[in-house]
Write a protein that binds this DNA or RNA. Sequence first.
DNA 1: CGCCACTATGACAACGTTGTCGCCTGACGG
DNA 2: CCGTCAGGCGACAACGTTGTCATAGTGGCG
Lengths: 327, 327
Amino acid sequence: MSDVARLAGVSIKTVSRVVNDEPAVHPDTAERVIAAIEQLGFRRNLGARNLRRGSTTGTIGLIVEDVGNPFYSELTRAVEKIATSYGRQVLTGSSDETRERERELALEFCARRVDGILVVPAGMQHGYLVPEMRAGTPVVFIDRPAGDIVADTVLVDNIGGTVQAVTHLVSHGHRRVAFLADSPDIYTAAERLRGFREGCARAGIGYDERLVVMRTPTPESVAEAVKTLLAGPDPATAVVAGNNRVAVNLLRALAHAERRPAMISFDDFELADLLDPPVSVIAHDVGALGEAAAELLFARIQGDQSAPRKVVLPVHLVARGSGEVAP
Amino acid sequence: MSDVARLAGVSIKTVSRVVNDEPAVHPDTAERVIAAIEQLGFRRNLGARNLRRGSTTGTIGLIVEDVGNPFYSELTRAVEKIATSYGRQVLTGSSDETRERERELALEFCARRVDGILVVPAGMQHGYLVPEMRAGTPVVFIDRPAGDIVADTVLVDNIGGTVQAVTHLVSHGHRRVAFLADSPDIYTAAERLRGFREGCARAGIGYDERLVVMRTPTPESVAEAVKTLLAGPDPATAVVAGNNRVAVNLLRALAHAERRPAMISFDDFELADLLDPPVSVIAHDVGALGEAAAELLFARIQGDQSAPRKVVLPVHLVARGSGEVAP
DNA sequence: CGCCACTATGACAACGTTGTCGCCTGACGG
DNA sequence: CCGTCAGGCGACAACGTTGTCATAGTGGCG
């Protein structure tokens, strides 16, 4: 900046004025300064500016489990869209579903003085965020609530959705419905299990825990679970997949099976409608999830001091065929 | 920091020493300082640190077309992985395939003094980056080369892959092969068209430009193109889809068609193997693309001054069935 | 006993910017 | 002709850190 000032024959403060479009600069002077800026390729240092101003850095942090998962990338996209509309940039990080990494990322973001943090939490311990939140960094939890603190949260109707899934399958004649989901340590999986139990109860079919498998969904673990669920004297005739990863791995495991059970997936996913049979899903608007969370965060950033909010977004059954397969 | 210093009864410089694990601090003093840090919830301001140090900010920028597209989210994930291994954070942005947004994002990143930029360029004009690169911000182009400047680039073998696709289709008896791709303004689409022409020539089938449609792939535009390509007295019996978006929209357009042409997609995509028939693809390792670009960027960041490099990653045909459909 | 090396610590400047304040000039009204 | 006022501009401090240098105390050695 001082180089620019020297070249333009003005003080560094005047350069600052020009860069910030402040009035009270003579047009001729401004022109000289702009020319000097062009010539030297000057770009103001936002870090220094933010330091001096002490205010916002114009960035927000987003922590998801894995940006590579289409669910989270759609979420990321929605967050980015809202951030852009508020003139902010997004720092992203993947927690790999581990508490430590989530914590590392969040604290790193705080050290960078992000204006706020959006997080799909991996764990249930968020006490580490209390000092940061007290220091004025708003945090909004997405898809899963905070473990041990009160904070803004945007969720989907996990229980209602799973109840719907079970009800749909039972209404098509199924009485042996299995539930295949991620580890119960994950909030959404645990909630969907509750929904599954409630659905079984409401539909008047018993809850048989031998039909429930909850593990991190790898192709292998799902294939193994499928083998168990479909074997024995009284096998499952329908499966509720607890999320999109489970569903995809389930489809892969069933690809060459002789008898394919009916199925419904919680979470929609690309090409579900083009499979044979098309996969029925409990769909929800991932974009809306991200947008709602981001809007909530920006409201906080702009000073909203109201009580922490909990938003639950609706889900709906999209019947495409795989849920209507007869037992 | 001065609060911490006051509470611990030391100077702010000593706090700095403790925070930075510098030696020459008495253990007892360090303990007092650490206690004060805990108590006050102090977290050092990385912005100020970077300003003072004048060195790296520990961030890199990544500009893609749309993080929501699985192709780019997988790329993002790979970049993030390498960045993490170098202890850096990633700022991401979607250009929406517009030059202006790409430029805005890149310059914003530069103003934030990122250590380097990875970009999937939207346009062909990159002169605006020259001052930044000269000022020491390395830039690596991914998937598409820079327009009018020399810079590091990581690409895939677009031409070779498309030649393979055409060859494969022709070897299964097709002579009316169509090419359906994104706008020719996009480098990869243009290159793949060149590959298509070359493939036609090598395979000894003529190049018929009536069988080529290049437009932004929306569900509607693709459906319309399909109708044209499959109509008339001498319709296409096979289609090469120019990328994953085209392929997905093509599949959707063909879902209810009576006669489905053979097809091969450039880019693999999830569930391609579970469709009926399974979709043959020209696959390439998107993760490797991101990793190679990120590694190249970090080499530059660490001072590699060698001549700009151009890396071309191999592709390979994955024959799953959709390419073997008879004419 | 005097000197030196070494440890532990602090004062101060600087990073690049912007907010505050004050100075100078020229125009305008009385 | 003088006072006032506004426009245009610069000097300086400050944001939160860290690098440099100086200083005080301690122990060992000739």
